[in-house]
Design a protein around this nucleic acid. Structure first.
Lengths: 347, 347
DNA sequence: AACCAAAGCGAAAACGTTTTCGTGTTAAAA
DNA sequence: TTTTAACACGAAAACGTTTTCGCTTTGGTT
C-alpha cells in the first residue's frame, strides 16, 4: 500500500533540499557527516531505492538487453538465453525476451517497440520468414541509429554487426567424418528443404566429407523433408529401397525418427547402421540407444553474444569494429555410433 | 549514427513549441490542421518515435512484466513463458525474464532490481531453496508496495496474491486411477524426497487413488529419489525385488528411466507393466514406447497468469481481491499404458 | 579589521514526455 | 462598436534522478 519513497519526500521530511539528499546518499564530501548520517538512516528506515526509470532517462541508458528469438520452446535457444542471462546479470543488465514465433512481422514489431529507449542493445536470431524474404531493413535501421546489435546462429551476412555462429559446414563435415571413420560407407543425409542458410551449410559439410574420403555421392541417400510427418514417410522409403549403414540428420528429432525406423526393421544400432544428429538436446540424451550428436554449445554462444554486446555498450570496444566469433562444436559420442575401439574391426 | 529525434528537436526545426508538437502528433483538436500536417510530415520524415522511458516516467508505469522462474531450460517453464508472452504482447506489454537458478539469493536480488520502476508487476514461480526456507519476505514486500504479483505452479499459501496452479493431488489421483482402471494392481510410485510441495501433493493423490480402489499401500513400491543416478539405482532394486505392473512417476524423466529398466528385464510395455509420467514434454512424445502423461497445459497457465496480472494492472479488477485459478490437467494416453479396449481382457 | 578559503548546502537544469492552464488573435454575435 | 466565443498556440509543471554552479556561513590568516 505504501508507495515507494522518493528523494523529494525524504528531503521534505528532513527539511533539506533534494540535491542534499541525493549527495548524502552517495556519500558526497560536499555534505557534512551529520547530514549524511541523518539522511542515510532515514533512507534505510523507509527502504529507499532509486527509481530505475528516472535514472534511465537521465543517463539515456536502460541497462536492459533485448533478446529476440524465433521461439523459446527449444533447447538450443533456452541454452543461449541462459548464457546471455548469466553474463548480463553479472554486469547489471536485465534481459527482455521477445518471441518472433518465426514471423517476420512480429520480429519487426518487437524490434520497433523495444528500440525506443527500453533497451540499450539487441541480440537476435532472425525468424525463418525473415531469412526467406531476405528483408533485413529493421536490422539495418537499428544499426543506423547507433544501437549495438549482435546476431547469433541465424545471421545475415549483409548486416554489418557483431555475430556469433558455429561453423555449420565444418561441424557437419566432422560428424559425417566420424561416421566414415567408424566404418560407414553408405551414409544418408536427412536435411530440411530450405532457405534457412544453416541447412545448406550442413549439406555442404556432408558433401565435402564424402568427397574427401573418396566416397561417391549417392543422390538416393539424400532426403529433404519439411515436417515430421514427411520425415517419417521418406525415411521409411529410404530404408526400404536403399542399403544404409550411417545416417546424419540435421537435428535430433529427425535422427530419432530414423533410428526408430531402423529398429522397426530389426537393424542393430550401431552395428548395422550408425546415427548422428545435430544439436544436443534432451531427446539425444535419453533416447534408446542414446544418440551421438554434434553439440553446439548454446550456453557459450549466449555468453559470447552477451559479452560482445556489453563490450560495445560499455564502450570497451570501438563502435565501428565488428567481429564474427565462431564457437567450436564438438561431437558427443554415445551409443548410436561405433566407438573408435571397433574401428579396425569394422573396416 | 543519427540519434533518435525528439519532440524538442522537431519543435525547434518547425519553430513551434514542444507542446504543440506533442499535441499535433496526437491529432489534438487544439491544433490547426495546417500545423498538424506539417508536424506529422516532419515526424514521419525523421521517423520520430516517442521515447518509452520518458513515457514510463511520466505515467509511472513501464508496460513491462517481470517473470522470475527457477530455470529456463525446462519444457514446462518455456511453455508458461510462451503463454505469458502471448497475452502480454497482445496488450502492449513486454516480458522481462529473470532466472533464479533455484537460488533464494538470486531470486531476491532479481526482484529488488526489477521492483524499482522497471516493471509494473511480477509473475513468479519460486525457487526450491525459497520453498525449503519458507522465507517469502521479498514477495511480501512487493505486495506491500502495492505491486501486483501472480504466483504459479510453486506458490506460497501464506502470500496473499493471485495464483495459478494445477491440482497436483487430483492429477496424480487421475493418473494412478487410469492405471488401476486398465488393470494394474501393484503400482509403484517414483517421487522426489522433498520440501517441494508439489511432490507431496502428488504422493497424496497416489495414496488416495489406491485407497479408493481398495488397494492396500505397499511401502516397498514407493521410491523416493533425489537425482537421476539415485533413480536408476532404486528403480533397478525395485524391479529386482518386487512385482510391479504399473508405475507412476512424478516427472517424465523418472518414468523413462523406469521404462528403460523394465525393457532391460524383457518386460513388455504396456502388457506386463504400464507407465505414466507427470509433465508432458518432448521425452514423453518421442520415447519408445511413447509415454502416457499427465499434461499440465503450461501455455494456458502462462496465459492465465499473464491475463490476471494485466487485469490488475489495468485496474479491471479490485486490487484487494485475489483468486486462485486451478488449471485442469488431462491425461494424454500413449503407448505406455493399456487402452480402454483391453480393459476387460486385462482384468 | 579585512580578507580568503573551505565547508555545507540549495537552485536549477537536464533527460523526453504529456497535460493543464493561460493568453492572444480572430470571427461572429449583440 | 463592443462583447463573446472559438481557435491556435505556448508556458510550465510533473514524473525522479544527478550534477553543476553559486551562495552563505564559518574559521583562520594576515
Amino acid at each position: 500500500m505504501k508507495r515507494k519513497v522518493t528523494l523529494k519526500q525524504i528531503a521534505k521530511e528532513l527539511d533539506v533540499s533534494v540535491s542534499t539528499v541525493s549527495k548524502a546518499l552517495r556519500n558526497s564530501k560536499e555534505i557534512s557527516q551529520d547530514t549524511i548520517d541523518k539522511v542515510q538512516a532515514f533512507a534505510k528506515l523507509y527502504n529507499y531505492r532509486p527509481n530505475n526509470i528516472a535514472i534511465s532517462l537521465k543517463n539515456r541508458k536502460s541497462k536492459n538487453i533485448g533478446v529476440i528469438i524465433p521461439e523459446i520452446v527449444h533447447h538450443f535457444f533456452t541454452m543461449v538465453i541462459s548464457g546471455i542471462e548469466n553474463v548480463a546479470n553479472e554486469q547489471g543488465y536485465n534481459v527482455i525476451v521477445c518471441l518472433s514465433n518465426e514471423s517476420f512481422d512480429k520480429e519487426v514489431i518487437n524490434m520497433e517497440t523495444l528500440a525506443n529507449g527500453s533497451i540499450d542493445g539487441f541480440i537476435i536470431s532472425v525468424s525463418k520468414e525473415t531469412q526467406q524474404r531476405r528483408d533485413f531493413h529493421h536490422l539495418r535501421e537499428v544499426v543506423n541509429q547507433g544501437m549495438p546489435l549482435v546476431m547469433f546462429d541465424r545471421v545475415a551476412d549483409e548486416i554489418y554487426c557483431d555475430k556469433v555462429v558455429i561453423d555449420d559446414a565444418q561441424a557437419a563435415y566432422n560428424a559425417v567424418n566420424h561416421l566414415i571413420e567408424t566404418g560407414c560407407r553408405r551414409i544418408a543425409l536427412i536435411t530440411t528443404e530450405d532457405y534457412v542458410s544453416v541447412g545448406n551449410l550442413r549439406t555442404l559439410g556432408y558433401l565435402n566429407a564424402l568427397r574427401d574420403a573418396g566416397i561417391e555421392v549417392n543422390e538416393n541417400l539424400v532426403v529433404k523433408v519439411n515436417s515430421e510427418q514427411e520425415c517419417r514417410e521418406k525415411v521409411a522409403k529410404l530404408f526400404k529401397y536403399q542399403v544404409v549403414d550411417g545416417v546424419f540428420a540435421v537435428n535430433e528429432l529427425y535422427a530419432l525418427i530414423a533410428m526408430r525406423e531402423a529398429q522397426n526393421r530389426d537393424l542393430k544400432i550401431p552395428d548395422d547402421v550408425s546415427f548422428i544428429g545435430f544439436t544436443d538436446g534432451l531427446l539425444s540424451q535419453y533416447s534408446n540407444p542414446t544418440l551421438t550428436t554434434v553439440v553446439q554449445h548454446g550456453y557459450e554462444i549466449g555468453q559470447h553474444a552477451g559479452q560482445m554486446l556489453i563490450d560495445k555498450l560499455e564502450e570497451r570496444e570501438a563502435d565501428d569494429y565488428f567481429r564474427t566469433e565462431v564457437i567450436k562444436t564438438s561431437i558427443l559420442k554415445r551409443e548410436s555410433t561405433k566407438s573408435g575401439d571397433n574401428l579396425k574391426v569394422s573396416q
